[in-house]
Nucleic acid binder design. Sequence first.
DNA 1: TTTCCATGCTAAACCGGTTTATGGGATGGG
DNA 2: CCCATCCCATAAACCGGTTTAGCATGGAAA
Lengths: 344, 344
Amino acid sequence: MGRGPTIVDVARRAGVSKGAVSFALNDRPGVAPQTRDRILAAARDLGWQPSTRARALSRSRAFAVGLVMRRAPELLGADPFFPQFLAGVESVLAERGSALVLQVVGDDDQAEAASYRRLAGQGRVDGVFLNDMLVDDHRFGLLAGLGLPAVAVGRPAGPCPFPVVTVDDRQGVAGTVAHLLGLGHRRVGFVGGPEGYVHSRSRRAAWRQTLEAAGVAPGPELVADFTGPGGAAATRALLELADPPTAIVYANDAMAIAGMGVAIGLGLEVPGDLSVAGFDDVPLAAHVAPPLTTVRQDAMAWGRAAAEVLLAVSEGREGRPTADVELPPATPVFRASTGPPRPE
Amino acid sequence: MGRGPTIVDVARRAGVSKGAVSFALNDRPGVAPQTRDRILAAARDLGWQPSTRARALSRSRAFAVGLVMRRAPELLGADPFFPQFLAGVESVLAERGSALVLQVVGDDDQAEAASYRRLAGQGRVDGVFLNDMLVDDHRFGLLAGLGLPAVAVGRPAGPCPFPVVTVDDRQGVAGTVAHLLGLGHRRVGFVGGPEGYVHSRSRRAAWRQTLEAAGVAPGPELVADFTGPGGAAATRALLELADPPTAIVYANDAMAIAGMGVAIGLGLEVPGDLSVAGFDDVPLAAHVAPPLTTVRQDAMAWGRAAAEVLLAVSEGREGRPTADVELPPATPVFRASTGPPRPE
DNA sequence: TTTCCATGCTAAACCGGTTTATGGGATGGG
DNA sequence: CCCATCCCATAAACCGGTTTAGCATGGAAA
């Protein structure tokens, strides 16, 4: 089984006790420089790496953090945020010696709660990321009860017992809407995400407020589910209205691209007959026809920041609360899917 | 720190030794049914879950498996395979009490090797998934040397020391090409992935062989990089040829959708002037305009099967080799992006 | 009755690190 | 010259499970 060398082998080779090896490795005072070098050399020679299993037990730390993805599997594939966020997280964890434990659960309260309970109860992780913030987030209470440190990825709707790492998505949407207004649009519709999500709310609010601030009545709006089929259905419904919008802002790119597909399928021209804007800047957004106007956020940077904060809070002294982090806001990216409306 | 109850608390409450608790929990013989019930009741009352940290140390097992994603971060986001595969993996791991440790490294040999060395050396995982099989895969030797069990996700090019879980992607591509031939195409081009990948090769071989078997000369082909920009550039190049293809088969959907965008941007009609086919059936494929003909593979099933095999090989007796698994082949999905060529 | 064995449980060793209590040798001050 | 201090290093306890060796007990076989 564990065929690798252990700390005892290193100690023997360096002619010291295993305690000394431990001290040298974690460079604590109380080891003569010369001895320390000898120990490190022995460790290098043997190719020894301390067993995370043993360290985890004796230090009462997991040296790992968790991410529970609650998402229907088919939705997972469409979301570009997730993998990029992970990449950012990993870049920080790797250099700090922590690992990422990933759980994927379906869209199910029970399964999600059980997942957190396992992670905490079995001591698998030192903390967790809370993504996809909900308007009334039941996870806060659960995690607080479990005593599991966490970081909120995104602005919580209410008071939150954990540090928060946010990116303002409203400015991006506002910029897009302002752009459409500047092009001359006066009927700007909106296709949002499910009401339960905080980011669904904030993107919709940004759309509405920008229009109202400009003295333009908000166009028709619908709630969809962030998926292609959902966006397509919503688009069809909006275009069938007696007074259809000349532009539609979507809460994500998947719905926007599908919506564009519907419009084109109906023989409309984009952006001639309908301007379309998304959110996320998925890798394909720049390459569909026409290229999609959208909003870009730096998911990797978000992941890095969240990981920093989570490590701090899970290692840190209980007393000193970790400060929240506000990252640069998401910015609009204007492409050919938005243009002036056809003069009536 | 570890504020939860321990096995000693359970033992005390049930009035037995901690050995007895361990026996009862892992239902081993040698515990009277009545005693067993008493122990389990005590555990339930206290809400005790055995510490994975302690179990990992004493059993010399990590109760976790690893997945090292070697991928440029921006490419990660575009790949629908990855999250769906993860969902499948997780569904199996969760019920077997294992966790998934995810590492993300850039496209860098050194970083990748270091990642595997850490996972193995620190005893973080009991085995790893090997995805994106390479034509000459240096990971085989590395992992064999580390003594780390593994499962190959996809058909290796040469002899492989690990069990293999495959999905035949050639039939899907062959079906697509046959479909194009049936529609009357005689100049069918191909945009492939980097040569190093086995699946790049096999998809290209399927394209070529299907054409040759039908007595049609393979159309022009190019190597791209699986990204949207790469696919767009290759498409532009193919369309600028003196005798451009009437149909292009792409090795994935990202390149196909971007290629379609280029064609439409040039004023061509799809499929009138150019038929386009992809591979993967990303969630958006059905919703772009026109909907994309592609090849679907069941990534979740693949993940499930790979996880089953990996757990078997990492738990299993050394002697008995685990059998390879061949999943149902990928199947073509015909949509509106392919149609008869314009008569000359 | 004695022998034998199966059953049910306990005590203790063990996994491989970390950490605390302790000991020994050199140093320095009085 | 002796004792108080450091400085280094060691032995042993500890983290929380698993596993082995061994000890009662009771019933069946001889």
